[in-house]
Design a protein around this nucleic acid. Structure first.
Lengths: 274, 274
DNA sequence: GCTTGACTCTCCCCTAGTTGGAGGCCGTAA
DNA sequence: TTACGGCCTCCAACTAGGGGAGAGTCAAGC
């Protein structure tokens, strides 16, 4: 016979926990002194406690443990319970993995933003933009409908999204009302979803400029790019792209003054056409 | 402005939850009618609620969410919190996977038991027992010390264990007191742990018999095996093995009448030696 | 036999994130 | 006027215990 303190040391369960288990009829002491109310545990209780500890590690609730202790005399009786628990664990693993992937994507994006800020080259560059598989929805309307369309894309593609959202611009002039553009997101593998165009953007030579500030001031950066092309006699082609490196994100609207947008306009050099 | 009911439909949070979030200063309504105490929410609250829902999905506590909403204006500010969350999720995934593996082992064992019971061939068989990598502790003493030694093996090898425990018997006669035996467990890969012998049991031709009942009656089954060998002139060799297919398990002591033990004794046929 | 200190008892409150219910106020429609 | 829906506050419950108060009990030392 062990007092509750001794039994606590043997089983690794706290005294509080043992009293609680008694109250819930999970682990009932072998003897209860009628005068003092002291609890005394025996060898059989030690084994019960061992079982309870293991079952709790497996994540069973106390209610289920009571049931198991009542109904199971044998490991075979336990199989049903274990299978149920296994399914729940599998599901939890799945969900957690999905969350980790999601967190990774956000962290990765912010790493890219930091790198872009560190480079501090808010200047025109000529560079090859590699091939990119994207899913997009082409729209004719106002640019501020962009947000809604990205919302749709997010809901429809979910976990297929693999990078920073961008927008293809098909107009060769600025239009307020009937702009022709295609909000898009990079994806890993081609998928078939109705209402969404899947397309592989070709590897292209582009003029690029990282625009810092609100979208309403994108015009200035376009002006810089166009002037740069004109000076060198480059011919710009369509569609151009706006890559929303940093904008209103999944969590916060953020400060538009800190938005980062990389403009990419495909071009051909005079020398290419000679 | 939305009433609490409308806002509940918009955000997918229950009215109860919204009141609770107000109390905890997680999500404070834009206006509170001073007379009636009615809560009214605005567009800004809708965005806050969206953030809160996502953060809760990630598994942040309300306390942390308050902190995040207070300190973060921007997704970059969130990275620290997210990394912390990521680590916790990774750990949870690891633990859950370990549990699933453990459950699988138990289920697998019980499947084997069921198959063995279904076959119902509690008769002597001659069969090749395949090679097996085991970890064991050799002991001289009484058989009932077996349990303690298995306990040691369990603690020392833990997750390396890959199958049903067994015991190698080095005596050619029954001994009560100074028996020479080696409780062992199958393992996946060789590991170095002091006090434990790692050994690969060779592929061998054995006489086998599944014994149903308590260990105290194992003698009967040995008798059957030995008589069988004598009748055919087979020469039995050492060590023999007892595989504890079903015995006192991780959870329950079980009923000894239902214990299943497969006895395996290596042998040579006369014809082999001619 | 008495004191002392360690141990144990019950009872109540606390955690997080809700859910449920009771009882009451407010506004509108029939 | 009454009924109903929506809203309010306050209270209790769930898990699996933890913390502490105040009182009773046990065993050892003197």
């Amino acid at each position: 016979m062990f007092s509750i303190g001794e039994f606590s040391k043997i089983t690794g369960l706290t005294v509080k926990t043992l009293r609680f288990y008694h109250e819930r009829a999970v682990l009932i002491p072998a003897r209860i002194e009628s005068g003092s109310g002291y609890r005394y545990y025996d060898q059989c209780n030690v084994e019960q406690a061992r079982v309870i500890v293991v079952l709790r590690e497996f994540g069973f609730s106390l209610e289920q443990i009571v049931e198991i202790l009542r109904d199971c005399r044998d490991e075979t009786d336990l199989v049903g319970f274990l299978e149920q628990r296994r399914a729940a664990l599998k599901q939890a693993i799945c969900r957690d993995r999905e969350l980790v992937r999601c967190i990774d994507r956000i962290i990765q994006q912010n790493l890219e933003i930091k790198q872009m800020i560190q480079k501090k080259t808010y200047e025109v560059e000529e560079k090859r933009v590699p091939e990119l598989l994207v899913a997009g929805i082409r729209v004719t309307g106002r640019y501020d409908e962009c947000g809604k369309v990205f919302g749709q894309l997010g809901r429809k593609l979910g976990r297929h999204i693999s990078g920073t959202p961008l927008c293809l611009i098909y107009d060769d002039e600025y239009r307020e009302d009937h702009a022709d553009f295609e909000p898009s997101v990079p994806i890993r593998k081609p998928v078939q979803i109705d209402g969404v165009d899947i397309r592989s953007l070709p590897d292209q030579l582009c003029l690029t400029l990282v625009h810092l500030g609100p979208y309403t001031q994108l015009g200035r950066s376009y002006e810089i790019l166009i002037r740069y092309a004109k000076e060198r006699g480059y011919r710009l082609t369509l569609p151009s792209r706006e890559v929303y490196v940093k904008g209103p994100g999944m969590f916060f609207r953020g400060n538009p003054k800190n938005y980062l947008t990389e403009i990419q306009i495909p071009f051909e050099r005079q020398s290419d056409t000679i």
